[in-house]
Design a protein around this nucleic acid. Structure first.
Lengths: 346, 346
DNA sequence: CTGAAAGCGCTTACAG
DNA sequence: CTGAAAGCGCTTACAG
């Protein structure tokens, strides 16, 4: 036992497989095998080892193991601003799923720039794969990553280059469904608040939305950019509601902007929602269901997205397929009072 | 070079310190030294190594290093439900700070029960220390952790036993300040919505609040439990506002419940806020500042809390101090319209 | 300042 | 089914 009782160091002695082997009266190989899925050990040996391990409080050092197996069972997640509740939920789901699979999640927060060093650090830690959640990556960095041979998948974004597998909701179809919904409730003067124009999510939602409107002979009457933030959404809404022909509906590319638009319309312009103006957001954030808002929105099915992403990484790790794919997960429009749905009394 | 070009395996050949050494014409010791803070290498050797490393795309394997240094530079964070925006922000801050320190953050999500296995897994990964963010831990588990010799600190909670260092905001003082505030605006019939009664945070807020009220000859007129959730808060508010002497102020132990109370008061009971009833929450969530709510709240100074927690872990790791401490970080009451502050026009 | 050698805690063919 | 030995990628006294 490597007991180092030198002076101040009152740390617990680390127990290794040797210690267990010694106590159990077997070889280190035997203890290794009892802790290795599907390795050959007799029931008897296994028992002896388990008992000894229990007594000593032995826990295999996963990091040491990774040195020989070449698998760390660590997945890296790069995320951005968790003040956006959708991102927080997405991250939570990733963490949970990874955990359920018996893997560990390394979480890094990406600044807007300078992600190269982050990636480099991730690779130093020998992660088995990486999930880019809501992260824009410089194309070069993305390529480097792809070339590292590690499975990489982006969630809720995709990179221009086709080298990297992505999982997003079906933003384009979702945009179209929002158009259908607004048309169905008889709106004609329709406005749009874009998210961050740099993101694929905002662009796809916009494209699907406008295209479906066009199929019905309509077009967006006014539009503005809200950058996916509450303040940005408020500013955009003020612009859309400024003098002139006011819209009778607003589609905000996320809920944060939808909440802002709702508040601006009601409190600053004295409009009635949905009578004077219908408003719909995107993400189906928790607050969309709160009485003060009752904001119609689009649910992204986060669990499914994360599931697909992780399965993809796992199957790559087991060497199954390797073609890059772009998964589109179906969304679900949730109609609430902000677009005229009557309140459900529970 | 360990190039394994066997068949389907198109993975990039892993380059190790041997490869770099060979290319640079030096020993592995030399390359190790150039990548080790403050080790002796001549400028010349260093250059050769750096150049070779650059060419090969070499990155030291941190995990392998940890085997001999006994430091992984990984910190484990155990968090709970990120749907609570305060928790999400706290986690974000932890991740960011850890990253800034050049460490890596392992994030686990704790279920309500069964955390033992989680902890065990964390220890398998040889984390250098662990942060328990908003996590209740079975006392036994907590003790095990403390006994593992790893620095552990809880944020926003503390465990009954005194073995573990904690960082929280000064919940008791904050509760007292809320009492002062409500008294200052002339309220007399004061109600309280508790969070999860199992948490130290809720209990401490309540204690400070009631004590200060008592000092002014007042007491909580009605109280209920909202379990820190929106729905729980709504139910609690309905109870508080039921027939009888209605309160003229409510202190909700977090914002989620505060929002719910505000909505219930306004929309279900037709009360004017703050004229008929003043409402104040806790956490200063983003939505507290939204026009629909303008909810007075208490800001917890997350950056400071996280800073203290991480410094504590770091200083323990460098063997400096070891006495358990309970840090209390000062809060800041943010008065908004829900308790009568006039709106700031920006 | 530098290199050879031993060691960190595990796993894995290889014989038996 | 089991054990001795070599190896994973690094670091660190130890000599020089």
């Amino acid at each position: 036992m490597t007991r180092k009782q030198n002076g101040m160091d009152n740390r617990i002695a680390k127990v290794g497989s040797v210690d267990v082997a010694k106590l159990a009266g077997v070889s280190r190989s035997a203890v290794s095998r009892t802790f290795t899925e599907g390795a050959y050990v007799s029931a008897e040996t296994r028992q002896k080892v388990l008992r000894a391990a229990e007594m000593l409080g032995y826990r295999p050092n996963i990091l040491a193991r990774s040195l020989t197996t070449n698998r760390t069972h660590i997945l890296g997640i790069i995320t951005t601003d968790l003040i956006n509740p959708f991102y927080a939920l997405l991250l939570q789901e990733c963490i949970e799923r990874i955990q359920d699979k018996g893997l560990a999640a390394f979480v890094l927060r990406a600044a807007e720039t300078d992600n190269d060093e982050l990636i480099s650090r991730l690779l130093s830690y020998q992660v088995d794969g990486v999930i880019l959640a809501n992260t824009k990556l410089a194309s070069r960095t993305a390529l480097d990553l792809a070339n590292s041979g590690k499975p990489v998948v982006t969630i809720n974004r995709y990179v221009d280059l086709d080298e990297i597998t992505s999982v997003t909701c079906d933003n384009e179809e979702a945009g179209a469904q929002v158009a259908d919904h607004l048309i169905a409730i008889g709106r004609k003067r329709i406005a749009f608040i874009a998210g961050d124009p740099d993101t694929s999510s905002s662009r796809d939602r916009e494209r699907g939305f406008k295209q479906r409107l066009a199929e019905h002979g309509l077009k967006v009457q006014r539009e503005s950019i809200g950058f996916y933030t509450h303040d940005g959404g408020a500013a955009a809404a003020r612009m859309l509601l400024s003098p002139g022909t006011k819209p009778d509906a607003i589609f905000a590319a996320n809920d944060l902007m939808g909440f802002a638009a709702l508040d601006v319309a009601k409190l600053e312009f004295g409009l009635r929602v949905p009578d004077d103006i219908a408003i719909i957001g995107f993400d189906n954030a928790m607050a969309a269901d709160w009485p003060a808002y009752r904001l119609s929105s689009v649910d992204q099915n986060i669990p499914r997205m994360v599931d697909v992403a992780i399965e993809e990484i796992l199957s790559r790790l087991s060497g199954e397929r390797s073609r890059t794919r772009h998964f589109r997960i179906a969304t679900n429009l949730v109609a609430r009072e902000s677009t005229g749905a009557t309140k459900m009394k529970d």
